[in-house]
């Protein structure tokens, strides 16, 4: 909801580059929802997603001088996805550690709070069920497919923006997206057939 005194993005970036933390924080507030949602969908863990998002914003502030010409959102999302990849690699190297962290945590499912629009409790429950099924499927995809599917279908980015966000050619975006969607479809067919139309005919 743009307010009358809302500053232009390029103006905020200019100010932030000169060390204006308040200007940078305006950018944080604008993009934190999207950054956090991407991190959560890539990592599947609310706490890890919060750490990754915080880390990514800090890195973005430190690397602002590298932002030239390109727009802020894909540049930021690139930092977010790379931070998440690093975490996933780290977790893959030390599976015991992450298991320990899961056991110790108060919230065993590591679930985030979901954004709730005006909807009935039944609708909300249905949406959450869909959300969890989709998240399970996403976590079964290789991370590079997962990132493309999340940016395209969850966040609604264009092929061009995804290409800039992930630093891969548009052709690669198309092929990874199709493979990711196909694998996710096959996962849902196997584990949640009730969510897909082909099951209605049986």
């Amino acid at each position: 909801m743009p307010s009358p005194n809302m500053r232009d993005e390029s103006e905020l970036i200019r100010a932030a580059k000169q060390g204006d933390v308040a200007a940078f924080n305006e950018l944080v507030l604008r993009y934190q929802q999207q950054a956090y949602n991407v991190a959560y969908r890539l990592l599947g863990d609310a706490d890890w997603a919060a750490d990754a998002t915080q880390d990514a914003f800090l890195k973005a502030y430190q690397r602002l001088h590298q932002l030239r010409g390109s727009t802020f959102r894909p540049w930021l999302l690139r930092i977010v996805t790379n931070t998440c990849y690093d975490l996933l690699r780290h977790r893959a190297r030390r599976p015991a550690q992450s298991l320990e962290a899961t056991d110790d945590d108060q919230d065993p499912d590591h679930l985030p709070r979901w954004q709730s629009d005006v909807e009935t409790p039944e609708e909300a429950a249905m949406r959450h069920e869909i959300g969890h099924a989709v998240q399970e499927g996403l976590l079964h995809l290789p991370p590079e497919y997962r990132a493309v599917v999340v940016l395209s279908d969850v966040e609604g980015l264009s092929y061009e923006e995804i290409s800039r966000s992930l630093g891969i050619p548009v052709g690669t975006v198309k092929s990874r997206l199709s493979r990711g969607r196909a694998r996710l479809r096959d996962y849902l067919r196997a584990h949640h057939p009730e969510l897909l139309p082909s099951s209605y005919r049986h």
Binding site: V21, F24, N25, V28, L29, Q32, Q33, A35, Y36, N37, Y40, R41, A46, A49, A50, T53, Q54, F57, L58, Y61, P112, R113, W114, Q115, S116, R127, H128, I130, G131, A133, V134, Q135, V149, D153, V154, G156, R181, A182, L184, R185, L188, R189, L195, L196, P197, S198
Partner: peptide, 25 residues
Amino acid sequence: EDMRATVLLLRQAPRAVPPRAFTLT
């Protein structure tokens, strides 16, 4: 049809709400 439904499910998936503001001090 199943792929299109999968894409629709992704678009409808609820959005995770950040647990806090990530503003920097």
